[in-house]
Amino acid sequence: MARGPDMTAKKKRVIASYSEKGGVGKSALAAGLAAVARRHKKVRRVLAGDLDPRGTFTAEVGITEPAFTMNDLLFNDTRNPVSPRGLAAEALIAAPEAWSGLYMIPADRSLAHRETDATTGLEMRLRLSFEGVIEEDDLGVLDLPPRAGGKLVSAGLVAATDVVIPATLDEDGRIGTDEAMATIKLVQDTFNPGLRVVAIVPSIVPPSKYPRRLAAEIAKYLADTYPDYYREDLTIPEYQERREARFACLPITSSTSDHGLAVVAAYDRILTASLNS
């Protein structure tokens, strides 16, 4: 099969946060990675894309009423087609000051229309739109919707070079991971053979010396099933600072509390693991 443009070249990275279950911390992970990447030495610019019509990531960054959205970027007028190559440059908007250094293609509810859009090449459109836009030392971060495949998930996984799967240590985390891994394989077998799974990271894990039995069971299952990917050392702890940051539309890096710093440290570790993979 013919391969698309070389987005997997050294230092051009687009990390997708993906699970097929909702509520496992996908948007939180995307926002966390974007927040820490802005101040990472190896990252020049952070370019984010929200592929979830609910726009959780967009709202967290504090973008309202944008000129263009992901829906506009993915839409292709078949009567007057516009080549998507490099088009992301026109859809990216500067995030508010608190998120300085971040540029984003936001999402709104209209993006759901693209799930039923049968236009040829929709899956490739986001990837092609990044051409010439994402440069060396830039980092792309994509927040994918919790779906079993579909156009938006496909567009995100085709545009991504790396995937991080957040997994809560419960049944949702397990199912979301299993199904995400199956979809990723489908994409690897077709559109994007170079797509890599960086890690399956335990997400929203309550800090406790005595983990609950179910959490231990799920952790064991993930570790046994995906020994190459499950990374307990990249666990994202559950602290209220994370929810507060989201509520205030601030990056988690704004937090100076011990708990906030612990969350930031977790995202830093995941980012480093991604950049070094």
Partner: peptide
């Protein structure tokens, strides 16, 4: 950033015709 294109009024990107339609309404 990319918005320079928009600022100059030379954008190739157009609003999707369904951009103002909430599919859940």
């Amino acid at each position: 950033m990319g918005n320079n294109f928009v600022q100059k009024g030379a954008s190739r990107l157009r609003k999707a015709p369904d951009a103002a339609v909430d599919p859940a309404v």
